[in-house]
């Protein structure tokens, strides 16, 4: 892929949604998410017919027999990641705007909340949501607790990325917008956000990948994702080696290509700006 091929064709007056390629991409993403949502919300129990041999060496037959269940568990972890990430994207935007607010009674608590969430462990936050909140009369299901916990945690990261993105737009752009007497809404939607987005997208992509790596923590509150799968197998067959190695590989198989895609995006975005 060359730069020129990726650069928007200035002679093409169609909006982005009128181009077949973009429509295909969006449709693909929607179908993917629908399938993931269907797969990722099933009730899963993990079991295998293959009895491991008693030896301490690596049991390949046992290892391979675990793969289908691992993939099932992966869909749960992936779906939890996606839903949390949507929460993070939206909530993060409000946090970023709240922190930027000129009204101290808004900006100060928002800032304090962001700093607090960012510097405390997600695990304890999950415990707070799942085991702590019932004492206040709020009962959350496993997936709800994970989605909220992971979503809020990453919202604080996203808000910082948004903030950095907005700050990365040169001051002169604001001045030019003022000089042209643009309305604040026009300034935001036509001037600031289009320039901030390319700076923010790679960071958001990184957070998505990072969120995927944190999502298996849901096993501590009973979400049947990858770690839940591995600990269940470990407890049932007293074999920790195969399941943990397997999910380790599973993680690398997803997060390495994902990280690679993010880097592609990063490079593409920096080309776009030249």
């Amino acid at each position: 892929m060359t730069t020129t091929a990726l650069a928007p064709d200035m002679t093409d007056s169609r909006s982005w949604w009128q181009k077949p390629r973009n429509v295909a991409i969006v449709a693909g993403v929607v179908v993917f998410l629908a399938v993931l949502g269907w797969l990722g919300t099933r009730d899963l129990t993990f079991t295998t017919d293959v009895q491991p041999d008693g030896s301490t060496s690596f049991d390949w037959a046992f290892f391979w027999s675990l793969v289908p269940d691992m993939l099932n568990a992966m869909t749960v972890t992936a779906w939890a990641t996606v839903t949390s990430f949507v929460v993070a994207l939206v909530l993060g935007l409000f946090m970023a705007l709240g922190r930027r607010s000129t009204m101290k009674w808004i900006s100060w608590p928002v800032t304090a909340f962001i700093e607090f969430i960012r510097s405390t462990p997600l695990l304890v936050q999950l415990f707070f949501l799942y085991y702590g909140l019932p004492s206040l009369g709020i009962v959350l299901g496993p997936l709800q607790a994970l989605t909220i916990g992971l979503g809020v945690h990453y919202a604080t990261y996203c808000s910082e990325a948004y903030r950095a993105g907005i700050n990365s737009v040169p001051h002169g752009q604001w001045e030019a917008a003022t000089a042209m007497n643009l309305k604040p809404s026009t300034t935001w939607t036509r001037i600031i956000i289009p320039q901030a987005v390319p700076n923010v997208l790679p960071a958001l992509g990184n957070f998505l990948v990072a969120g995927f790596k944190d999502a298996p923590l849901g096993f501590t509150v009973g979400v049947t994702g990858l770690m839940f799968f591995a600990t269940t197998i470990q407890a049932r067959y007293f074999r920790p080696v195969e399941p943990y190695i397997l999910i380790g590989i599973g993680f690398l198989l997803v997060s390495l290509p994902a990280a690679w895609l993010v880097r592609r995006l990063e490079r593409y975005m920096s080309y776009e700006r030249i």
Binding site: F212, K213, D214, P216, L217, L226, M227, A230, T231, P240, Y244, I247, G248, F251, L252, S255, L256, A259
Partner: peptide, 9 residues
């Protein structure tokens, strides 16, 4: 690439 929780286990 590997999740820290998985690496830990």
């Amino acid at each position: 690439g590997i999740s820290s929780i998985v690496l830990l286990f």
